[in-house]
Amino acid sequence: MQVTLQTLVGGLTLGAIYALVALGFSLVYRTMGLVNFAHGQVAMIGAFTMSTFYMTAKLPFVLAIGIAVVVTAVLGLVIERVLRPLEGKDFDLMLIGTIGFGVMLEALAVVVWGATGRAVPSPLHTAPLSVAGLKIQTYSLLVLVVALVTTAMLVGFLHRTRVGAAMQAVAMDPEAATSVGIHVGRSNAIAFAIGAGLAALAGGLAGPMLYVNATLGSTIGIKGFAAAILGGFGNITGAIVGGLGIGVLDAFAAGRFGGYSDLVVFLLFAVLIMVRPTGIFGERTVNRA
């Protein structure tokens, strides 16, 4: 029982990171129908940027993450700008283009930060909470809270602000949005920038829990992607459920199947997608592209 609960806690903690990654995926997807395969690598760049400002420049952790978010948001704008000619035309090509970006960013990280990577010390130094024999890290709680608050803020942004509403409109019908005077290109760019910023938030928060190196992106990227799909691609609340779900699934698979856990997780995932392509909260069409 204790093993089960502790596994659950561990799964939820990493799941919160996957959820933040999935949020960015979903936001970009629902707005412009693009699946950004470089999203994980953007998160990795965010993590490295955070580590540079936190460890090398000795800035406060929160500020370092803030800077990382801004840096990757700009990176997101660049990616969006480069791929813009393909928007609404060939989604498969765009998808391959983002894979190209991912490969590039990974190499770039090695050039800039080296291949060894770095361990980031935790900004919180309090002892873990002990609840009925369960150990819960205060930092894990922080990450979980950040993930939930971010989701709430994102939902609020989309529903209660003008820019957010415009993005919603673009997501539903780009043509109609254009006809009522919404600048689709700008809306897409904002979505991409926010998505990239969310990736940096995920990467930055993952830093002290994991180890920051160039392959961090592919590790959390693919799980975050799976989370987004599981939650129902493009669905914001679905992303958070999907993220936590994948985290827990991963944790239990690792406990139960050891080295074979990847095999089990990905086979299970393939079956889930076939049974329910729209994910848990899927609402829109199966294949918007």
């Binding site: 395969f37 998808l95 693919i222 799976a226 691609f233 990847d262 393939a270 199966v286 294949n287 592209a289």
Partner: peptide, 23 residues
């Protein structure tokens, strides 16, 4: 899976199956 899903869904499923093979 291609009978059910296409495009990026298919991309992630086939990528997952490739990782399952490596595993």
């Amino acid at each position: 899976p291609a009978l059910r899903v296409q495009s990026h869904y298919l991309g992630i499923v086939t990528l997952g199956l490739a990782l399952a093979f490596t595993s």
